[in-house]
Design a binder for these strands. Structure first.
Length: 647
DNA sequence: GCCTCTCGCCTACC
DNA sequence: ACAGGTAGGCGAGAGGC
């Protein structure tokens, strides 16, 4: 053993867990030689550092522990250790990287559960290097730097050994701290699992879908069986309405059905489709309001529904007591709908259940739309479980009265109405704006609103996407106070232009877009822009300047690095995206260039047609015949033309 | 060459 | 292998004219 050191402050987890890391002479797991082995034991609170040839001592250390924890250890460290003669059989293997992020599918596993300063870890991580994660989570140690060639040597000087041990020690320490951090984050999830899952760290390392499946099966007393991942059968999801106008002001409310999907499951008894306690005729097969496809037990709430109800009430209680476990329970409830549509989770999977759930909520929202509309409200927009409407009467009491009637009517049409089912006021709004696409239609899932307490909310716009240029973000930041002051989001193009050109002059790099790309091998389409970027600039995150002149990716519109962009002049820059996409929502009277082009085309076609008519007219001797004088008006004709063009 | 369409890919909304 | 669908948007490539 090269080194042993007390661990200092340590999280008391009451388990013999070994956090470890190795240093190798290469990255190929089949050929790499383990040169150094470092570990921290939660059993005796000690750090251990070994050179790679001390196999017996290392094995003794491993054998003394039940759980081994590493970073990317399942795919890297453990295979190499095993190839070098170590044995990890029967160890519970916790891989911190795999717990956060699944590399094969580039899917977050638990990143979305960890929040730092109100932001989800998923959005804060440009890559999944241990160093980056340590920085974002503000762990006490940062990963050191070392020239990896040092690990290719066989003989070391004293100084080199000192350097290596220090490096290895810090790596182990970061891994240990990351484990402690995640342990604290996920611990609330432990208690809802069965003892075996608690014991083998399934509460820590499973995906959220698996976690929910295990918890529900355990609590409902059903078998935990798994099926094939059937080539994803699709069914209809939420209903999204198309906005009718570009802007609304006045007394606007955003109402939403509370826990709509869980309540649809409970009130429709949608998991109780296989019961034998009632005949087919006795089962609920829907009605005019909710024409469901399945047949559901009407005698008693099913066992899964009972579990949902139990967790729903538990969440209310936790919420009242400000208990952090609230979020775990919320997670379980909300994930249930997702897994009901995935065949992997055999005993909760039912396409009928999932699609009847979405059907019920679609019909709820449509009913609310119709009802509010009939009661004299302007229904502005709806998405899945929310309703935006304008109250022209300025009478909240009356509005809430109609809300109550709607809830009552919905409950009347479902076999197991729940008292907790309700519609809440999610936001009070002074003004809301929608935007047109290239066909002149108002877009869904894209809008801005200003609340009564002067908060600006932006939904879906390119401005809030991660790829958005810094320049647009900066311009928006300077517009913000004016928007609040004026209660309007629209500005003249000239006004915004001033900001844009001033900023470009300061720093051309501000127009760059953000890209996060996979390894080229992971792309099906080698010609996709993402793959091109990866080939030219490498896997990972890049800020790339769109331009017409140079760069390693793109054909007509090219992308170059910030470094390469130094050779560009103003005329080379591609600014259309900034104007037509990122900032267009804030420009008064803005129209999509494609829309303008098409309109022009329609107009040209109309004029050509007119010429033709005139020619026929003059050529013919039917000067006063009706055949020439068209019986449709110019406006109608233009409308027909436009239809044709838009079709 | 321009236009339109499909598809892969990414990200946001719920 | 290890939740779901809905929607906007970009850009490459194919095919029509």
């Amino acid at each position: 053993m090269k080194y042993k050191k007390k661990g200092g402050d340590v999280l008391q987890i009451g388990d013999n867990v070994l956090v470890f890391d190795i240093e190798t002479d290469g990255l190929d797991t089949t050929t790499a030689k383990m040169k150094w082995f470092g570990a921290f034991s939660f059993w005796d609170n000690e750090y251990y550092l070994f050179s790679g040839d001390e196999l017996e001592s290392i094995q003794r250390l491993i054998d003394a522990h039940r759980v081994v924890v590493g970073f990317n250890s399942n795919d890297f460290d453990i295979p190499i250790c095993e190839n070098n003669g170590l044995n990890f059989d029967y160890k519970i293997r916790v891989d911190l990287l795999k717990t956060l992020f699944k590399y094969e599918t580039r899917k977050s596993v638990r990143e979305q559960l960890i929040k730092v300063d109100g932001k989800v870890l998923k959005e804060l991580l440009p890559n999944h290097k241990l160093k980056t994660i340590a920085e974002v989570l503000k762990l006490s140690v940062q990963k050191g730097e070392i020239d990896y060639n040092i690990f290719k040597q066989d003989v070391y000087t004293k100084l080199q050994i000192k350097e290596i041990l220090k490096y290895l020690y810090y790596d182990v320490k970061i891994t240990k701290e990351l484990f402690e951090y995640m342990y604290k984050e996920f611990l609330p999830m432990k208690q809802f699992m069965k003892p075996k899952d608690q014991n083998n760290y399934n509460w820590f390392r499973t995906s959220l879908g698996s976690y929910t499946y295990k918890v529900i099966c355990h609590h409902a007393g059903i078998e935990e069986e798994y099926g094939e991942h059937s080539g994803r059968k699709k069914y209809e999801g939420g209903f999204v309405s198309q906005p009718a106008k570009s802007t609304y002001s006045g007394k606007i409310y955003c109402l939403d059905f509370k826990s709509a999907y869980p309540h649809a499951f409970m009130m429709g008894n949608l998991y109780a489709h296989g019961c034998k306690c009632c005949s087919d005729e006795e089962k609920w097969n829907g009605n005019e309001m909710f024409p469901v496809e399945g047949k559901y037990c009407t005698k008693a709430p099913g066992k899964i529904e009972k579990v949902i109800k139990k967790f729903y009430n538990l969440r209310m209680q936790y919420k009242k007591n400000k208990d952090p476990r609230e979020y775990t329970v919320k997670l379980i409830i909300n994930t249930m709908y997702g897994i009901s549509g995935s065949s992997v989770f055999t005993n909760l999977y039912s396409l009928t259940t999932a699609s009847d759930c979405t059907l019920i909520v679609r019909e709820m929202v449509k009913y609310a739309r119709r009802y509010f509309s009939a009661a004299g409200y302007d229904v502005i927009y709806t998405d899945t479980d929310s309703v935006y409407l304008r109250d022209n009467k300025d009478n909240e009491k009356e509005l809430l009265y109609y809300r109550d009637v709607i809830i009552k009517q919905i409950k009347k049409n479902l076999p197991f109405p729940e008292d907790t089912f309700d519609m809440g006021v999610d936001a009070r709004i002074k003004g809301i704006w929608f935007f047109k696409d290239e066909d002149g239609e108002f877009k869904k899932k894209n809008y801005i609103y200003l609340t009564e307490s002067d908060k600006i909310e932006i939904k879906g716009l390119p401005l809030i996407k991660s790829s958005c240029s810094r320049i647009s973000q900066n311009v928006y930041e300077s517009l913000k106070p004016l928007i609040i002051e004026r209660g309007n989001i629209k500005f003249s193009r000239e006004y915004i232009e001033e900001h844009v050109y001033r900023l470009i002059k300061q720093d051309m790099g501000l127009i760059a877009n953000y890209y996060k790309v996979k390894h080229p091998d992971q792309y099906k389409s080698q010609t996709s822009i993402q793959c091109q970027i990866s080939v030219a600039y490498g896997e990972g995150e890049h800020w790339l300047v769109p331009n017409l002149k140079l760069g390693g990716a793109g054909k007509s519109k090219k992308y170059c690095s910030l470094e390469e962009a130094k050779e560009l002049c103003m005329n080379d820059l591609y600014l259309d995206h900034i104007w037509d996409t990122e900032l267009s929502p804030f420009i008064r009277d803005w129209q999509h260039p494609k829309f303008i082009r098409r309109q022009q085309k329609a107009k040209d076609a109309y004029e050509r047609q007119q010429d033709k008519i005139m020619q026929t007219f003059f050529k013919s001797d039917l000067w006063d015949s009706e055949a020439v004088g068209s019986d449709i008006t110019d406006e109608e004709f233009l409308a027909n033309e436009m239809d044709e063009v838009f079709q």
